[in-house]
Amino acid sequence: MLTPGQAVRVKLDWPETRGPCHIRTPHYLRGQSGVVERHLGRFPNPEQLAFARPPQTIDLYHVRFDQPSLWQQGQQGDAVVVELYETWLEVA
């Protein structure tokens, strides 16, 4: 389990290039580094639910990213905070 303050990286992965899939991780975050804010709970994996496959229950986190770093524009200190599943996160 990840803890608040822990540095993480979103997997640089593009499952949509390998076939039909359902993804809750936005494109603009793939491969980006962020910090865990808090654990949001455990939920059935929507990537499996979308295909009526028996879902695993997995951890969901609120992860904070530096907004100007994502886009090379914006105001220093601003953040983008996103719900991400454990299956998409690597310890940085």
């Binding site: 809750r24 949001l40 904070r64 601003d78 719900e83």
Partner: peptide, 14 residues
Amino acid sequence: DNVQLRVVDSTADY
């Protein structure tokens, strides 16, 4: 300028 902006991208179960 001293107010931090936090954009919350609602992607999942909340």
